[in-house]
Structures are given as C-alpha cells and as structure tokens.
Simulated assay, not measured.
Amino acid sequence: MMTDYKVETINDSMQLFFVIFHGPKESAYQGGVWKIRVELPEGYPYKSPSIDLVNVFEVFLPQLLLYPNPTDPLNSDAAALMIRDRTAYDQIVKEYCEKYAKPEDAGVAPEQKSSDDEVTEDEDTSSDEDVAGKSDP
C-alpha cells in the first residue's frame, strides 16, 4: 500500500489488514499509535475501494486530528471543553494518548519510527492483536 506505513495482513488476505497509524507531529496526538483495521471490497483489486487509502492515512486522519470540528462532535463533552478551554482539552488528549495509545498497545516496538519516517521490513515485529485505544476525549 504505502512504504512509510506498517501494514499487517490478516490471514494472508488482500481484503483485510491493519495499518499502524501514528498521531501527527506537533499535535496533542503526537506519540499516540493506533492499529486501524481496513476491509476492502470483495472484488478488490478489480473493484476499487470507494476512497483512496493513501488519502485516508496521509490527509484525512491527520487533518481530523489536527483540526477537529467542535460544532459537529461525536463526543459533545470533549467538544464543549475544546471550545471552553483548548489548553485543558489538549492536555486531556495527551494524557489519553499516553494512557491508551501507546506503541506497545498497537503491537509496535516503542522505538519504531513514526509514520512520517520510512519503516523497513527489519522493524516489522508486531502481531495481529485487537485494535488498540479508547475513544477520543
């Protein structure tokens, strides 16, 4: 898929795999690591997914984390805190990342490079564990 993301197939399937996603640098999510489950359509590669996967991991997810929209939240308490006190909101996000989005929770060695750095096959040491992390604050 992409050379700078760690991708783990599930049961050697081309349709089902995990992508290790690192929080964007210079954000409250920096240092957080998530194991994201991706499922492609049955006819893949002859039937393409409805969205370009590179855009999801390179653009959409980082933008969502860097510029959340508190006027259309999934978590109304977090949105209210973000509007009222951005510093407190960022602090809670950092605490949640340290608590629930540690590299080892996603099956990644703590010293592994972030998604902005290239990952070599020699650094591939993770396992097919359940998706790590809790809901965003």
Rank of each mutant, 00 (worst) to 15 (best):
D117H: 08
E123F: 01
E129V: 13
E98W: 03
S126R: 07
D130I: 09
S115T: 07
E123K: 04
D116K: 00
V108W: 05
K99L: 11
Q112C: 10
V119N: 08
S127I: 13
S127W: 12
S115D: 04
D124V: 08
S114N: 10
E104I: 06
P110V: 05
Y100W: 14
D122I: 06
A106L: 00
K102S: 05
A109T: 11
D122T: 00
S127T: 14
S115A: 08
E98P: 04
K113A: 10
G107K: 04
V119T: 07
D116W: 05
E111V: 07
E111P: 07
D105R: 01
T125R: 12
A109M: 13
G107N: 00
V119P: 07
E121Q: 09
T125F: 09
D124S: 07
A106G: 03
D117N: 10
E111W: 09
A106Q: 01
D128H: 08
A109Q: 13
E118I: 10
D130G: 11
D124P: 06
A101K: 12
P103V: 01
E121F: 00
K99W: 03
A101P: 04
E121D: 13
Y100N: 05
Y100V: 02
S127F: 14
S126L: 11
E118L: 13
D117R: 08
S114L: 09
S126F: 06
V119D: 06
A106D: 04
A101F: 15
E118N: 10
Y100S: 05
S126E: 10
D128N: 15
S126A: 09
D117P: 00
K113C: 08
P110C: 07
D117E: 13
T125P: 00
G107P: 08
S114C: 09
K113H: 09
C97W: 02
E98T: 01
D130T: 10
D124C: 08
S126Y: 04
D124T: 00
D122K: 13
S115M: 02
S126I: 05
A106M: 06
A109V: 11
E118Q: 09
S114K: 06
C97P: 02
G107A: 02
T125M: 10
S114T: 12
